[in-house]
Design a protein around this nucleic acid. Sequence first.
DNA 1: CAGCTATTTAGAACCATTATAAACTGCAGA
DNA 2: TCTGCAGTTTATAATGGTTCTAAATAGCTG
Lengths: 132, 132
Amino acid sequence: MKYIDKLRNSGLRPTKQRLQICEVLFNTERTFHFTINELEQKIKDKIDNKISLATIYNTVHAFEKKGYLKQIPVNSNQTYFDTNITDHHHFYNLKDGKLIDLEKSDVGPINIKRKIDGKKIKSIEVLVKLED
Amino acid sequence: MKYIDKLRNSGLRPTKQRLQICEVLFNTERTFHFTINELEQKIKDKIDNKISLATIYNTVHAFEKKGYLKQIPVNSNQTYFDTNITDHHHFYNLKDGKLIDLEKSDVGPINIKRKIDGKKIKSIEVLVKLED
DNA sequence: CAGCTATTTAGAACCATTATAAACTGCAGA
DNA sequence: TCTGCAGTTTATAATGGTTCTAAATAGCTG
Ligand SMILES: [Mn+2]
Ligand SMILES: [Mn+2]
Ligand SMILES: [Zn+2]
Ligand SMILES: [Zn+2]
């Protein structure tokens, strides 16, 4: 029930697979960051049937396009996603490749003084790399 | 001459290939951003002999490790590098995948209020995505 | 229920990057 | 200058995350 309307309202059919992925992604206490591999594992742990990797990719991209997920710019061979879609920034722990949210209040206002003709700012993302 | 000492002082042998790559990367009016593919093309255009792709990768990684190049965090299937190793930020033009430098003076000071125990901040990078 | 389209799926393909291992080369010491 | 060796280059293969393909399946509308 919970996610059926969300999906329908987005023009996405509420399939069994998408609903299960919604459970894993959104029915949580806290938001979290993930790679596709990590999500695949999480799905295996939480549900009994199998969801193909292609469907996981399809669904993540569909959700991203609808704004239910964000991609985070990091230097990694894997793509990082975020279920926290509010405006916020990140610590990136180089040691283990984990991301930590910096809430908006953790970072002073970002003031971009330069403008590019004919272009609009779509997002401003700060990545703070951490080492020991 | 110009780059022989730079390399030797870094513990890198000044080979013909490395010196030629230095010319392409550093003997320029302006700094620039590049992917490995773009660099490979630039090298082909500027020198007569062939440098293998493996050597280009090896050299770029060696130079990055020595701090002569920086990697820029973007969401792309290719890795972006920067010959501008000063502290600065970037516009990322989503339309064509090109980066534009934001000089330090173009961005107000970034104030990270939160600390992580036992971790030091290695870098702070701002990516401003641009759309039409 | 029928028909249509969206979705799922296994597997192949893609492609940037890294690994391999043999040939080559810069250089320190003789 | 010659020798020997570690460092480097190279062609090529392997890796691995991601995307593509096309056939099977499942929602949805009438
Ligand atoms: Mn994507
Ligand atoms: Mn690298
Ligand atoms: Zn986050
Ligand atoms: Zn730059």
